[in-house]
């Protein structure tokens, strides 16, 4: 049954990667990159069970945290044009 899960996540990854490459705007690409991260966590979990080594879940967790930070960095950069932008300091939202 782990074959089903791994295969389904892989197929979804292919479709989402296609969107990340073709996406007309940068936000489409960020959206696709974010869901690639989600799918990668699920893929690592399923693959860990498939190979009988659930320790892979730890890698998935780390990947998830990095994915969150990465998404925010990209969005902040495209919104403010600066990673060190401080809303409280600037005052204008």
């Amino acid at each position: 049954m782990f074959f089903v899960a791994t295969g389904a996540v892989l197929l979804a990854l292919v479709l989402v990667v296609y969107r990340a490459i073709s996406g007309p705007t940068v936000f489409d690409r960020v959206l696709a990159a974010n869901s690639i991260g989600t799918l990668a966590i699920l893929f690592l979990a399923a693959l860990g069970f498939l190979t009988g080594r659930p320790e892979w879940l730890d890698i998935g967790l780390t990947y998830g945290l990095l994915n969150l930070i990465g998404t925010f960095a990209v969005l902040k950069f495209f919104r403010h044009g600066d990673l060190a932008f401080d809303v409280e300091e600037d005052g204008t939202e």
Binding site: V4, G7, A8, V9, A12, L31, A32, S35, L39
Partner: peptide
């Protein structure tokens, strides 16, 4: 797992 796989593929097709 089959239901989850269905939703994952559905989401990807939706994207």
């Amino acid at each position: 797992i089959c239901a989850g796989s269905f939703f994952v593929i559905t989401g990807a097709v939706g994207i």
